[in-house]
Every structure is written in structure tokens, then in C-alpha cells.
Design a protein around this nucleic acid. Structure first.
Lengths: 142, 142
DNA sequence: ACGGTACTAATAATCGTTCTCATTTTGTGA
DNA sequence: TCACAAAATGAGAACGATTATTAGTACCGT
């Protein structure tokens, strides 16, 4: 069974908060897990002709739920919010191709350590950070 | 005379593009230069009781103009767009205090070099980047 | 089956920003 | 200096993304 871990995480969160496991939530979770870096709009179109029609508001609500459960994380690329599956992943940042929109994940501990060092010199304590590199991916460099 | 360089830069841009020097543009530029990291709303409230009332649309238009002139740069902190004076400054990034909203600028070449190195391993060419550290500033750490 | 709680879709509302438009201001060249 | 075209203005409508409201529906334990 694919995605069992994510489903378990969601159910755990739902039970802990006296929320319910619904068909819509499972459907949205499934669609989310099949696609990295989706927006609410994309999921909405993707599920457009699903048997019981799923409203846009429900998708937004469920995506927020996934964030609360620790399954997803929001990323603000451009004007829309993208959601990223973070289960089984350590912290990572992104490169975004401004030509084709491709999103490449990467992680680099050295950068993180330098961030801590810089913050320390200003007496600043980091809780989270956001690092995005914009440019051209290998394919678009022509 | 304060801010002469910025004013010259704006006038130069206006002339080059057959645009006009207006009272509103000078007033907005002045208010912008007095305050680092402002939003359009903040400027609007700041100029609320100015002799000739300045509309919000004009502020947005002028801020975009400042960006085009190379005087300002947009930063998307939270839901609103902040504008940052970049004249006489090299590239820099920001720490944002999630408690009091303070914004601290910093620059670090080592981080930039590491970014280039990481990008290179993915065949990616960086044109711009965004690095934001969120956390608590020295004062709020209590 | 009952009452209660949480869910849903649809739609209205909100927020930040941009557009439209009728009017005013600016720069230019006679 | 004057007139005129081009550009800028303020007010408010419009916009896209997201959230709140509402009225009705499904599920749970009793």
C-alpha cells in the first residue's frame, strides 16, 4: 500500500483533534500525494469530474489540515500557494526555473550553518527560514 | 540635500521614458526614503492628510515606478508587498522577527557562493534569490 | 430513531493589488 | 506665453487568491 504513512499521520491528527475521516479528505490527500508542489487550484481542476464533486473551499480547508498534521508545508511561489509533501523528507529548499516553472529540491547543511552564524552575530534566533533560487534549469538554458 | 541621488535616479528614469515629474511622485519618493521596508498601505496612511490627497492607486503605481528606476525592490513578506530602498546598497537578505515585525538586513558572501555551488551541481543557473530568516530578534527573546 | 457534532458545497466576503475612466496636470513647441 | 497632446491623477470598480458564512447532510453514541 502506497502512502500508508501519510494516511496514518492524517488519521492520527484527526482523531487527536476530534475531527473526522471523510471521503473528501482521503481523495484530496491521495491527489496531493500523487503530485508534488501543487496549488489548490490545480487540485481543484484535477478532481473536477470526481464522483462527488469537491468544492474549492474544501480543498483549501483540507490542505490547511495537511499542514497542521505535518504532512504538507506551504510555499509561496509567485502569487499562489504551493503545497509540498514533507513526510520522509528533511528540511530542504527550492530552485525555481523561471522559464518552465520546474521546481528542484535541494538541501545543504553548510548554508544552514552559515545562516545560524550570521543570525548569531545579530542576536537573532532562527525558527524557520525560506531560501529560493530563481533562474534557469538545465533544459531551459538554451 | 538628502536623497539627491535617489531623486536624480527617478528623474533620469522619467525623462528616458517620456514620463512626467509630478508633485505626488516627489512626495511619495520622499516618504519612501524616510522609511525602510514600507508597504503601500503604510505609505497611504502616512500621507493620509497630505494637502493634495494621494490615492492608493497612485502609491502602487509610483512604487512600481521606483522599482523600474532601480531605486526600490519588492519583497514579499507575509501577505503584503514591502518595498526596500536599494540605492547605495549591495545585495542583501533579511531576518524578520515574528514577534515585533522588525526587519534586519544582512549580507553574507559565503552563503551566496554556496548557493552557486549547489545550483551548479544541478545544472541550474541562478538569476536571483530570496533568503529570509524568521525568528526572534534580540529584544523579543524574553 | 434521536440529538449533537462535524462535515460539505455554494456562495458571499475579504484582502491586497490593478484597472477603468473622467478629469487635471505636465512638458513641448509655436 | 499659449495651446495641445500625452501622461497622471483619484475614486471606485474589478480582480484573483483565499477565508468565512450558511443551510443543509452524514456520522456517532445512546
Amino acid at each position: 500500500m502506497k502512502h500508508a504513512k501519510e494516511l496514518a499521520k492524517l488519521q492520527d491528527h484527526l482523531v487527536k483533534h476530534h475531527l473526522k475521516v471523510t471521503k473528501q479528505r482521503e481523495v484530496i490527500l491521495d491527489a496531493f500525494l500523487r503530485n508534488e508542489h501543487v496549488t489548490a487550484e490545480q487540485l481543484y481542476r484535477m478532481l473536477g469530474r470526481h464522483k462527488p464533486h469537491i468544492g474549492l473551499a474544501t480543498i483549501y480547508r483540507t490542505l490547511n489540515l495537511l499542514c497542521d498534521s505535518g504532512i504538507a508545508q506551504e510555499r509561496h511561489f509567485g502569487s499562489q500557494t504551493h503545497y509540498d509533501n514533507v513526510v520522509n523528507k528533511r528540511h530542504h529548499d527550492h530552485m525555481i526555473c523561471t522559464q518552465c516553472g520546474a521546481i528542484i529540491e535541494f538541501e545543504n547543511c553548510d548554508i544552514e550553518h552559515l545562516q545560524e552564524a550570521v543570525a548569531a552575530t545579530h542576536g537573532f534566533t532562527i525558527t524557520t527560514h525560506k531560501l529560493e533560487l530563481y533562474g534557469l534549469c538545465r533544459q531551459c538554458k538554451n
